[in-house]
Amino acid sequence: MNLDEDTCEWLGLPSPLEMYQQHCLLLENEIHELNLLLSKARADIFGLVSMLDEARAKKDEFAGYLRQRGSEAAAMRKQISDLTSSAIVSKREADNLRLIVNELRSRPTTIV
Rank of each mutant, 00 (worst) to 15 (best):
M1C: 00
M1L: 01
M1S: 00
N2C: 00
N2F: 00
L3G: 00
D4F: 03
D4W: 02
E5P: 00
E5T: 01
D6W: 00
E9P: 00
E9V: 02
W10V: 01
L11M: 11
L11W: 02
G12F: 01
P14L: 05
P14E: 04
P14F: 04
P14W: 05
P14C: 03
S15K: 04
S15R: 07
S15G: 01
M19A: 08
Y20W: 05
Q21D: 07
Q21L: 07
Q22C: 06
L25R: 13
L25M: 09
L26M: 09
L26G: 08
E28F: 02
E28L: 07
E30I: 04
E30K: 12
I31G: 02
I31D: 08
H32Q: 12
E33Y: 08
E33Q: 15
L34H: 05
N35F: 10
N35R: 14
N35D: 11
N35S: 08
L36N: 06
L37S: 06
K40M: 06
K40G: 05
R42D: 15
A43Y: 06
D44G: 14
F46N: 06
F46Q: 08
G47R: 11
G47W: 08
G47S: 14
L48E: 12
V49P: 00
V49E: 14
M51L: 09
M51C: 07
M51Q: 13
L52A: 12
L52N: 13
E54I: 06
E54V: 04
E54D: 11
A55L: 10
A57W: 12
K59T: 10
K59S: 13
D60V: 06
E61M: 10
E61S: 11
E61D: 12
F62R: 15
A63S: 15
A63D: 15
A63Q: 15
A63L: 15
G64C: 13
G64D: 15
Y65H: 15
Y65I: 13
L66I: 11
L66A: 15
R67Q: 14
R67N: 14
Q68F: 07
Q68T: 07
Q68I: 05
Q68R: 09
R69F: 04
G70H: 12
G70C: 08
G70E: 14
S71R: 08
S71L: 12
E72V: 01
A73T: 09
A73N: 10
A73Y: 02
A74L: 08
A75Y: 03
A75F: 02
A75H: 04
A75L: 05
M76F: 01
M76T: 03
R77F: 04
K78H: 05
Q79R: 09
Q79T: 03
S81Q: 12
S81E: 12
L83E: 14
L83D: 13
L83P: 02
T84K: 14
S86T: 12
A87P: 01
A87S: 14
I88V: 13
I88S: 15
V89G: 06
V89C: 09
S90M: 09
K91P: 01
R92C: 06
R92M: 11
A94G: 01
A94R: 07
A94N: 04
D95L: 05
D95V: 03
L97A: 13
R98E: 04
I100A: 14
V101H: 04
N102Q: 11
E103W: 03
L104R: 11
L104V: 02
S106M: 07
S106T: 04
R107K: 10
R107N: 04
P108S: 09
T109R: 14
T109L: 14
T109H: 10
T110R: 12
I111T: 13
I111W: 06
V112W: 01
V112R: 09
